[in-house]
Simulated assay, not measured.
Amino acid sequence: MKTKEEIFNLIKKTVNLSEEINDYQMRLSNGRFERENLIGIYKIRKGIATRQENFKLAEQMSLLLIGLEDYTGILLKGANIYGKNYFGMYYLSEDWEKVIGYLESEIDEDKFNKLI
């Protein structure tokens, strides 16, 4: 398995995080996520976001779904990154070699403290 720093740097290349690993808290999943289940979940969540007129979230879910549908593997790994005003949830290939898709958001400090 790759180190947290290697995974962070891979994610950083994908989403252009501005700070270094020490400026964030990072959690890696111990389990695996089934690609087909995630596709079903995020299609439903995208529909809900669209009905609630949260078009920014619906667009992020569309991009995540494209990555999930293009991925040929069955299982994925997950990582969450928390920063002062940032939260990102990332799905990576089972071998931690590639970012498949992600959702990210700016958050205020109160929400951040509830996440950790």
Rank of each mutant, 00 (worst) to 15 (best):
G40D: 09
R51P: 02
E59A: 15
G83S: 10
N9M: 05
E53R: 13
Y71S: 06
F87N: 07
F8P: 05
V99G: 00
D95V: 12
R51N: 14
A79S: 07
L115Y: 13
K4T: 01
N30A: 03
K77Q: 14
E6C: 06
V99T: 05
I41Y: 14
I7P: 03
F33G: 00
I66T: 15
I116T: 10
K111L: 12
Y42D: 10
Y71G: 04
S105E: 14
G31C: 00
N30G: 09
M1F: 02
N30T: 07
E19V: 00
L103A: 02
F87G: 04
V99D: 03
L75C: 12
S29E: 07
I116D: 02
I7S: 00
E104G: 08
K77C: 11
G73N: 05
I44S: 11
Y42S: 07
E94L: 06
E53G: 11
K2L: 09
Y42Q: 09
N85G: 10
M61Y: 15
R32P: 00
N16G: 12
Q25F: 01
F87S: 09
K114N: 14
G47L: 05
N22I: 08
E53L: 15
M89H: 13
L75Y: 15
K43H: 09
R32N: 08
E104I: 05
E5G: 04
K4Q: 06
Y71R: 03
F112M: 05
D23N: 11
K43T: 14
M61D: 04
K77A: 08
Y90A: 01
F33C: 00
G47E: 14
Y42L: 08
D108Q: 08
N30E: 09
E5A: 11
E34S: 02
N30M: 02
R51I: 08
N9S: 02
N80W: 07
I41C: 09
G78S: 14
K13Q: 11
Q52D: 15
G40E: 08
G83Y: 09
I41W: 08
E59C: 11
A58S: 15
R32Q: 10
N113K: 12
D108Y: 03
I39D: 03
M1C: 09
